[in-house]
């Protein structure tokens, strides 16, 4: 199984052509689709998109580095987000983060070598009453303890094996 889908210029071109059929193509929506497809924004894709859409590369790069939703480094198949906002922190987010970090063997912001898991922190999810909050593949879990984090991680890891 290959770790990353390989970058294919024709795919990006198809995507851009599809967009052009509709209304005014938006840089953000194109970048979102490329991010979803490759789990990051390959350098060649950014260059191709800029040239094709007539947007200066400097501007495309500025947008790509501004938003948290975009990554210039490949992200794992499964993304685990630990909220480290003030409320989650005082409710024990640090322990939860350490537990997950130890078990995956990576630091926040890193991706496991097999390309399966990315661990990230987020500053606030606006669900402070539920803290500490962990988001695994888009699913929210509240009042997470070390043990609960372990169980959550086991579930995600089991899913990773079946795919």
């Amino acid at each position: 199984m290959s770790f990353q889908p390989t970058f294919d210029a024709s795919e990006i071109e198809d995507l851009l052509n599809g967009k052009r059929g509709g209304e005014h193509p938006s840089l953000m929506s194109v970048l979102e689709e490329v991010q979803a497809r490759y789990r990051y924004l390959p350098q060649d894709a950014l260059i191709l998109i800029s040239e094709s859409m007539g947007v200066p590369l400097s501007q495309t790069y500025g947008v790509a580095t501004f938003y948290n939703a975009f990554s210039l480094k490949p992200k794992g198949r499964h993304v685990i987000n630990v909220c480290t906002g003030t409320a989650c922190m005082v409710r024990g987010a640090k322990k939860v983060l350490e537990r997950i970090s130890d078990r995956l063997g990576i630091q926040p912001g890193e991706t496991t070598e097999d390309g399966q898991f990315t661990l990230e922190t987020v500053n606030c999810l606006g669900a402070c009453a539920l803290g500490p909050v962990v988001v695994a593949d888009g699913a929210y879990s509240g009042e997470v303890t070390g043990a609960k984090a372990n169980a959550l991680l086991s579930k995600v890891m089991a899913e990773a094996k079946t795919v």
Binding site: L46, P56, L57, Q59, Y61, T65, F66
Partner: peptide, 25 residues
């Protein structure tokens, strides 16, 4: 020329050419 832009956000925000390498623009 559009050779440079503001990249990143918050404390890491800086002025840079794309990919932080020499820009042929």
């Amino acid at each position: 020329a559009n050779a440079i832009s503001l990249v990143n956000r918050g404390f890491t925000k800086e002025v840079s050419p794309p990919f932080e390498i020499g820009s042929n623009a």
